[in-house]
Write a protein that binds this DNA or RNA. Structure first.
Lengths: 252, 252
DNA sequence: GTAATAGTGTCTCTAAGACAATATCTG
DNA sequence: CAGATATTGTCTTAGAGACACTATTAC
């Protein structure tokens, strides 16, 4: 009895976004402050309803653009200037996850370079980049009080899943470049890995490895001294999606 | 404006199952024949509606038990006799994926050992194990005719995604043991890898590798000659979930 | 000059892949 | 016996990690 179209329980379907970036050597996520109950005043992940005739991926891309001005882009094409990586993460549908009604949320993961503009449109005081460690551990200014959980609904779980996805995916794919501007140095890419994994990497072995992995980095010919020290070569992301051999996350 | 509970578009939410097993050296998926339009008479993945107060994972476990008699089990516990691995795969919600109404399907992936019983309950002629190659390529007896796609709805896409998930996940996790009976030999485990990846592996290097990976296999002390030749040691799955170092899939 | 970052080279060790040789069963 | 599968061992080589050393900037 696979389908009975005349009698099915109605659900609301939403998308929630885990938008990650690297700012000041820390992995940060986009959080919005809730203006109404439930969880009023609490921080939450951005998101919203999927429209009646809208594809789920399109809804996620629309929410991302509304919150950040970033465009989701097809990874097989070269990245336009204001591009972010966007992929489906997982779906959360516990019957009690929203106290008002049955809501199934299709969470998505977006990876963005550090945004120079403070964000076009929207209230600056109700949308913020917060270090994921603060949002997940519940320490620091984003916590209401010592007893309350830091994020509304099941968003701590969703954020944790998104962070773990990002941490593992930069091992075997070139996704770490999604955190970098269009042109970047090997040192800047290394600082991305260090921030996402929370470890220190050997600059010399890292350099040898990323420049030796075919298709990962393409030199642009330019150099920069924006990190100080000796001028560093600039690179763009190469065509490779999967890294072979992979970057290995150091053991605990 | 994250939520407006009074006005949201209603969706039907279903679970679809990619149930994989290894039979006669081939990776096979469970397929059911549709008894009503649309796609009447066509093969499809098993699935059904999520109930009004049912968790999504519980709905997937219920459908799995209804179709196969298998129990989904927590991977942190030792596997009971009739256990299968079950995990969420991805969510498919194209507005046109079902011609009757807006249906969002949360697909799940299940891995099961080859079932000795032909299946308890249900019509044997409308539920079958079919090689995934046949279901995806559309060649062979499961194809209606040369022009029609082999699987209903977007189920070919879902099946392909599930197969790719299984292929990559047995590289870095101990999930391949989910295709084996509770006690198995190194050779039987190797034939699982060969069937899922569709390659031939060196028996000697495979043996050295799996027995050398800590926590992967635990010897039970027994031996068997069910594969012919010299008696082989029997093993159970060890406690390890992630394999370090991973099993490497041979390159193309 | 010092301090910083960038980049190259060298050494050691783990482990992957190729494959020889031996062990123990069935027919 | 031949033929099947299981298991151990050996050799070669790719690559990860540790780390010395040189290069080029800012101050």
């Amino acid at each position: 009895m696979p389908y009975d179209p005349s009698a099915f329980p109605p659900f609301a379907v939403t998308v929630d976004l885990v938008v990650l970036t690297v700012r000041r050597h820390a992995l940060c996520a986009l959080a919005v402050r809730r203006g109404e109950p439930p969880y009023q005043g609490r921080w939450a992940l951005p998101g919203g309803f999927v429209r009646a005739d809208e594809d789920i991926a399109a809804a996620a891309a629309r929410e991302l653009a509304e919150e950040t001005g970033l465009l989701a882009h097809d990874p097989s094409l070269p990245a336009p200037p204001n591009a972010a990586h966007l992929e489906q993460l997982a779906t959360y549908g516990d019957p009690d996850r929203d106290p008002r009604m049955r809501v199934v949320s299709v969470a998505h993961l977006a990876l963005a370079p550090d945004l120079p503009a403070p964000r076009p449109g929207g209230d600056a005081h109700s949308v913020r980049w917060a270090p994921v460690e603060v949002l997940l551990d519940g320490n620091g200014a984003y916590r209401q009080d010592a007893a309350s959980p830091p994020l509304a609904f099941d968003h701590a779980r969703i954020l944790a899943d998104g962070v773990e996805r990002a941490r593992s995916k930069i091992e075997y794919s070139s996704l770490a470049t999604a955190f970098c501007p269009q042109e970047f140095t090997v040192g800047e890419l290394r600082r991305v890995y260090e921030a996402v994994w929370g470890v220190a990497l050997d600059p010399r072995n890292f350099h040898r490895k990323v420049t030796g992995t075919p298709g990962f980095l393409v030199p642009t010919g330019g150099t920069t001294t924006r990190q100080g020290g000796r001028p560093a070569q600039l690179f763009r992301a190469g065509g490779a999606t999967l890294l072979n051999p992979p970057m290995l996350r150091p053991e605990a």
